[in-house]
Design a protein around this nucleic acid. Structure first.
Lengths: 334, 334
DNA sequence: CTGTTAGCGCCTTCAA
DNA sequence: TTGAAGGCGCTAACAG
């Protein structure tokens, strides 16, 4: 026998489809107790599972959430531990609340738009930078969204981010406290992001409060490769003794490249990262970093989204998760 | 205006729904060229996207694939780089072929079963050990599956794995070649798996060929925590000089714990891992490991699955991806 | 080439 | 408390 439908159960039970439907949906007050029992037994016996496609057709909505992961074409962002930890945590929380997760790795507006509409998704969570799409997305589709780490000027979006400015401050203060005075700021990656901009501002403001001049002298052009970063760092003049790198992944690559070039960390260069991905604690030396609570970020994102699915008129929420400095071994006292 | 439907386009174009449907589905031979043009323009203009739920209702199938990730309750397996790399790669390949990915992290048979049926999934990819479910799954649902690293005795399943036995051989041979004679075998994790069993067999057979007795003397009880592994390793008598750990993640944890206990790697203990996750190259020392080609494994898995979706009568495929020894810095020559 | 019809599985009126 | 009818958006089968 093929997959059971309401009709199958109904005919087996000798009742109408409606009645079975009512039992399935828990409207017990519309069905006689004896029928409820009988029908429930049949449902169990036939392994009946409601067809979501059919439901979504009538309901104009599903219980499926889109998780949109920013990725360059054919680039696997899930190798990035930060993304993996966040996405996994989101999926888990969604499941617990009864939602399914549709994953899409893309950078392309049209693709996102199509994916969102074709399944009648109940909502979507975005990871990565989608600021430039936010307005259009809100117009084109009418489903609740939540962005992460967005600095869109729009007041009408949901977002969960971390206190990037404060992260920059913490990194700078720690390095200053450890005696460093010439510190590079490294924002790796091809695209400039507002996130890095904020971290830089925090970083510079702490330097400024410390009497060091608040200008671009200590900044470096961005780059993606560890070796490139290392070479640029070593070429700086006047030379620096430390660097604040805005992503753990890159910081670890940088350390690796420095070692390859015969430099020692933290003896020659002290390094502070950002994110607190798992990898950091196994690096050598273990990476001192500005930690963000990834699991909590995921939970908050899910909670906000669900709130807005259940109540479309809920006001926009923009939550900032706190950050903290996690001292390990990659910074040396001068 | 709400989301456009076939009906909307049809009325705007002054034709029947069927005609529009034919254009959408590329049956151009059934529509006059002039209509094709006009309708395509309207589709573009209205941002028409076919409703997948409706399609799936009529077609009895979707273009959505389930990715089932083995996870203990509320445990985020995606923090494991191996899983992240594999799953991300699978999603990417599926996308390229026009499939959507539904992610489910679970361990529970009933949950899996429900997820599979409620969306009329076209197929499913399993990561982790699901051997005990395989038979039931095949009976209960009728969609194509592919498992990974399964050693189910069933000849009728699709599977892509790695040559675990050979991996064990490679690890042992390398350590032997480097002069080690007393080597521990460590299969971390709570559950014993056939995968580890195979790696152990390969490992022991290499020892045997080398004249070392093929018995359990060198084996260790399994455990999950780095510290526990380290202590057990150090307690072994007669003492060992090296260990083969069947997962990089665990190997790295072990190294970490050994260092904490005042031991040095590879000076006091040489370690060989398995998987070649990204983390390994940044560990200290960089981890020597039995490498499996994760990206290729993902592509092969997708290809096989798609083949079976397109042709339900395609014969079962069981592909083994080769492994190779990747020499880095965690093994010392004795 | 075009349109009408029926039906996929479900839910929501509305009557009985 | 029960059931019949209609419709969600789409495709397939069949007539014109």
């Amino acid at each position: 026998m093929r997959i059971a439908t309401l009709k199958d159960i109904a005919s087996r039970a000798g009742v109408s489809i409606t009645t079975v439907s009512n039992v399935v949906n828990g409207n017990y007050n519309r069905v006689s107790p004896s029928n409820v029992k009988r029908i429930q037994a049949l449902i169990e016996e036939c392994h009946y599972v409601p067809n979501q496609s059919a439901r979504s057709l009538t309901n104009k909505s599903t219980n499926m959430i889109g998780i949109i992961i920013q990725s360059e074409y054919m680039t696997n962002s899930l190798t990035d531990s930060y993304v993996g930890e966040f996405v996994g945590s989101v999926v888990l929380h969604l499941q617990r609340l009864g939602y399914d997760s549709l994953i899409r790795m893309t950078n392309d507006y049209v693709d996102i738009n199509r994916s969102l509409r074709k399944w009648n998704l109940a909502g979507a969570i975005f990871t990565g930078t989608y600021d430039r799409y936010i307005r259009d997305l809100a117009e084109d589709t009418r489903i609740p969204f939540i962005f992460t780490d967005s600095y869109s000027s729009s007041r009408r979006i949901n977002n969960v981010g971390v206190d990037d400015f404060r992260g920059g401050v913490l990194a700078a203060e720690h390095l200053l406290k450890m005696g460093h005075r010439r510190i590079a700021f490294i924002a790796p990656g091809l695209h400039k992001s507002e996130v890095d901009e904020q971290r830089k501002n925090g970083f510079l403001s702490a330097l400024g409060r410390f009497g060091l001049k608040e200008n671009g002298d200590y900044l470096m052009p961005t780059s993606d490769s560890g070796m490139e970063m290392a070479e640029m760092l070593m070429d700086m003049s006047p030379p620096v003794t430390a660097a604040f790198v805005t992503a753990d992944r890159a910081a670890i690559r940088l350390i690796d490249a420095l070692k390859e070039l015969g430099k020692r960390v933290p003896d020659d260069y002290s390094i502070v990262g950002f994110d607190n991905i798992e990898l950091g604690q196994y690096a050598t030396p273990p990476l001192t970093t500005v930690a963000q609570a990834i699991q909590r970020k995921a939970k908050v994102a899910v909670d906000i989204l669900v709130r807005h699915i259940e109540n479309p008129y809920a006001p926009p929420e923009n939550i900032l998760i706190d950050v903290s400095l996690l001292e390990r071994g990659s910074v040396r006292r001068l």
